[in-house]
């Protein structure tokens, strides 16, 4: 489903063979990394939201980004599919490598990037003018003309993957607004994975939902990590602990500029944090 990366980028931007990582262990570890961030800073006008963040996300893993409100975790997430830059005067500096290419390199196409990096938002946002079916199929339709039977197949598969199929299969033509909040959010997840992205970004996907719907979403994340790389922003520490493989902790200093304080496997971070500030945060002393 996902086209080879090379086909998406202009020929002159493809890395030359010589520059590709060498064979061997380095290459193997490289192959396991879906995306890596190197020295990333993001701005809103003159205000710097995050500074010099570097970390990498492993394939078929759930990575949680935690931190107190305003520490820049959502900003970091939105830099990963270049959605940050659609805000007037917002910009990002640094490198975000994906498939051996910097997505911020000149000439890189944000539209094509976003087809490989899907996103689920805090508030469910199905398209109100479309039916449930059309919502699930919307990403595919954007990508180009798709035969009807193939479309049916993809819609069913993604709705099943999002654990929604049984609830909506009889009312696919109805407006998505008739669904409950939790169902709407699962529809949004189905919409994001229908185009089979490499990475799915989730920005506090369960924060607007009731506990039962939240549990369903969490179960879904564990299920989805078999096929996708998932990066989730959450302020719910238990949730991070429950679903993620690795956790990154961001904290804004006195100047309100967010820094990456600690990045470690989740179990390690919650049991044996290296940084005092991490410990204070996860033990609930602030934030």
């Amino acid at each position: 489903m996902v086209e080879p990366t090379a086909a998406l980028e202009p020929v002159h931007l493809r890395p030359k063979v010589a520059e590709r990582p060498a064979q061997g262990e380095a290459a193997a570890s490289q192959a396991n990394v879906a995306m890596s961030v190197e020295g990333l800073s993001a701005f809103y006008g003159k205000f710097k939201a995050i500074e010099d963040v570097s970390l990498s996300f492993d394939r078929q893993n759930v990575t949680a980004i935690i931190g107190p409100s305003g520490c820049g975790k959502s900003t970091l997430l939105r830099c990963l599919n270049r959605l940050h830059e659609i805000i007037p005067n917002a910009r990002a500096v640094g490198k975000v490598m994906m498939d051996g290419q910097n997505i911020y390199a000149p000439g890189m196409n944000a539209v094509l990037l976003r087809r490989k990096v899907g996103m689920v938002f805090q508030k469910p946002n199905p398209f109100p003018s479309m039916s449930i079916y059309d919502n699930a199929a919307s990403g595919l339709k954007l990508a180009g003309r798709v035969p009807k039977d193939h479309l049916d197949e993809v819609v069913e598969r993604s709705l099943r993957q999002a654990a929604l199929w049984n609830e909506v299969k009889d009312k696919l033509k109805q407006s998505a607004f008739n669904l409950s909040g939790g169902q709407q959010q699962r529809l949004c997840i189905a919409r994001a994975i229908a185009v089979q992205p490499e990475i799915v970004l989730m920005d506090e996907p369960a924060s607007a939902l009731d506990p039962i719907s939240t549990l369903k979403i969490e179960d879904l994340m564990v299920e989805l990590r078999k096929d996708y790389t998932i990066i989730i922003v959450t302020h719910n520490l238990q949730q991070a602990a429950r679903v993620s493989d690795r956790t990154a902790f961001l904290l804004g200093g006195e100047d309100r500029i967010g820094h990456l304080i600690e990045y470690a496997p989740t179990k390690e971070m919650f049991t044996n944090p290296k940084d005092d500030r991490t410990e204070q945060y996860i033990t609930g002393r602030f934030g």
């Binding site: 990037l113 976003r114 087809r115 996103m119 938002f121 199905p126 398209f127 954007l142 919409r191 994001a192």
Partner: peptide, 9 residues
């Protein structure tokens, strides 16, 4: 943003 995130022009 939902539409943009799907890779819409």
């Amino acid at each position: 943003e939902g539409m943009l995130a799907l890779g819409a022009t």
